[in-house]
Design a binder for these strands. Sequence first.
DNA 1: AAAGATAATGGAAACCATTTTCATTTAGGA
DNA 2: TCCTAAATGAAAATGGTTTCCATTATCTTT
Lengths: 157, 157
Amino acid sequence: MGHGHGKGPGQWCHGKFRGCGYRMTTGREAVLDVLSQANEHLSAEDIYMKIHPVYPAIGLTSIYRTLDILVNIGLIHKFDFGHGRARYELTEGPKGKRHHHHLVCTGCGRVIDYTDFIDEEVALLKKTEEGLSKKYNFRIDNHLIQFYGLCDACNRS
Amino acid sequence: MGHGHGKGPGQWCHGKFRGCGYRMTTGREAVLDVLSQANEHLSAEDIYMKIHPVYPAIGLTSIYRTLDILVNIGLIHKFDFGHGRARYELTEGPKGKRHHHHLVCTGCGRVIDYTDFIDEEVALLKKTEEGLSKKYNFRIDNHLIQFYGLCDACNRS
DNA sequence: AAAGATAATGGAAACCATTTTCATTTAGGA
DNA sequence: TCCTAAATGAAAATGGTTTCCATTATCTTT
């Protein structure tokens, strides 16, 4: 699984876990490892599949539990692209990708990350957030932007 | 259920249905009626609950089937606010509300529709869409914007 | 208006991602 | 090393949504 040999992402999150009162275990480390290695949005089962060959003792249940914690801690984001299963992705961190938004193909289900226009979008979002926060007294701490349509491949057929 | 007495939304969609090869039935009309009367985002069961007292013969299954068709035809939008059930809302139409985006409270689950800043947002979105369409050859026909955070009530407690 | 072809329906069962239960194991402070 | 609470896996439960299938209803054709 290409463990970082010493300074993997486990190191990075050890503190985060402990700080929140959680214990660090093999399974949790494995989940973080897989997530930081991956460049796609993984489902719980995807993660299970990658971990299983290496640590057959770790069950799907624990993975769900770990993902839940990670979402609450803020280390990962949980997405729903409308395919009946949640997908998870590391929050932008030291090794994290840049903040991005999504293009979701309604034909084949493919999800494209894009960072183009992100700056303008984020600038507008910030302004919008301020306005909305004030008007509705709503403390905003996250946003979701997705475009739906047909991808290149689906357009041709 | 406050049927429109003659020129309800059923009238509006009759043609749409027929044009797509679907037959108009009591159940389908009832679903459209409920959706056009409602100002909130309804789940399949919400709709069932409203229809049942009036038309006890109509089952939940049919409602799911009708909603599916309506989504495909483009008459309604399907949303997932992360509460484990889909919610449906009439697409902006003759009687439809203005296009809007959502504020989702992660505390209590409340969803607020906002139209403030919509113009600026939509303008930017249009520009972004053009760029993305070109770059990825992606035909965009919909977008989703949601802000997550804590609502006024949840902020206080 | 009646008949026929085919779409639509309801109820029950199936589905399937996610959660819960519970007895057992483990991490990490004492 | 011991101890206690946290974490775990396996199996069962959950709950929204779909599928199956025999029956019914719609709409076109006479």
